[in-house]
Write a protein that binds this DNA or RNA. Structure first.
Length: 276
DNA sequence: ATGACGTCCTGCCTGC
DNA sequence: TGCAGGCAGGACGTCA
């Protein structure tokens, strides 16, 4: 389940491998992964384009190409984008293979087939509504305590679903949200309007910290995540609550519980993160 | 406008 | 032992 730190890890590992190379033909084994344009057109248009630079916005990986084009990739739950040698064996879940000008390949693999690819002229990037409507980058300077306070004010929703809302903060998913709430000692079911200024400040710091640590540890590999070179991340070893139901809280020793919040499983310490 | 919930999909795990 | 069913969750569509 790639979230911001995982997508950023993919970007960092692929950037030195891909920058300057050209696409030399694409094999599309599962056409539905390509959202735009039509797969036939996609194959034609991307051919010969050069990869100038890799960037990221929220959980979207963005390949800036020559000729004012952009290849946008979303890995969703189980997607991966890996730089491979031509002869490496193909996985049964590899759906798109890009041939590169140095003879290597870039392969898009996705067990659950939720991932998506878009190829668009830069001028049409706004047609990708998910990308266009993203909120602030939580590690950039636009994300401030005041921004968080303003966004949470007047929202009669529980805090957890709001943190998962990509139009507010871009890049948080289930794992880092639970970790941030635990660090800030806030129960995932608290109504956003009931958070005190002190709690919001604590939450702000916690969000930045867990994302930063996730990147430093090259992401969390809970089930499927691998980076652009096929390697797993390390942050799962440092998770304090996610997927640790029944284990003792690192802070107080009480047992971590699991409960559905907003339809998503949430892990928290009922002692440190009181419902109030 | 806002929040709740179903949908997509495969693999893994549990329980009968 | 084998199989059915539940669960995992990012983003989007639909509904109230």
């Amino acid at each position: 389940m790639p979230e911001l730190p995982e997508v950023e890890t993919v970007r960092q590992t692929l950037q030195p491998k891909l920058a300057g190379l050209k696409f030399c033909g694409v094999q599309v084994y599962l056409p539905k992964m390509i959202k735009t344009p039509e797969p036939e057109q996609f194959i034609k248009e991307i051919d010969g384009k050069k990869i100038v630079k890799l960037s990221r916005r929220g959980k979207y990986l963005i390949l800036n190409l020559s000729d004012q084009y952009t290849l946008v990739v979303h890995l969703r739950m189980t997607g991966s984008l890996v730089y491979c040698e031509n002869g490496d064996p193909l996985s049964k879940h590899t759906h798109v293979v890009f041939n590169l000008s140095n003879g290597a390949q870039l392969r898009f693999t996705d067990i659950r087939q939720f991932g998506q690819l878009w190829l668009v002229p830069n001028a049409s990037l706004d047609s990708l509504s998910g990308l266009k409507n993203l909120g602030v980058e939580p590690l950039e300077s636009q994300f401030t305590r005041d921004y968080l306070k303003k966004e949470l004010r007047n929202r009669h929703a529980r805090i957890k679903p709001l943190l998962l809302d990509q139009t507010i903060i871009a890049g948080l998913g289930n794992i880092y949200t639970d970790e941030a709430l635990h660090r800030a000692k806030i129960n995932p079911e608290r109504l956003a309007t009931t958070l005190t200024p002190r709690e919001i400040a604590s939450l702000y710091n916690a969000i930045r910290a867990v994302l930063q640590e996730g990147i430093e540890n090259k992401g969390t590999t809970f089930r499927n995540f691998i980076d652009g070179e096929g390697r797993a991340g390390n942050y799962q070893e440092q998770l304090q609550v996610y997927s640790r139901e029944g284990e003792p809280c690192s802070n107080c020793g009480k047992v971590i519980v699991k409960k559905k919040v907003g339809g998503r499983s949430s892990y928290y310490c009922p002692s440190c993160q009181k419902a109030k």
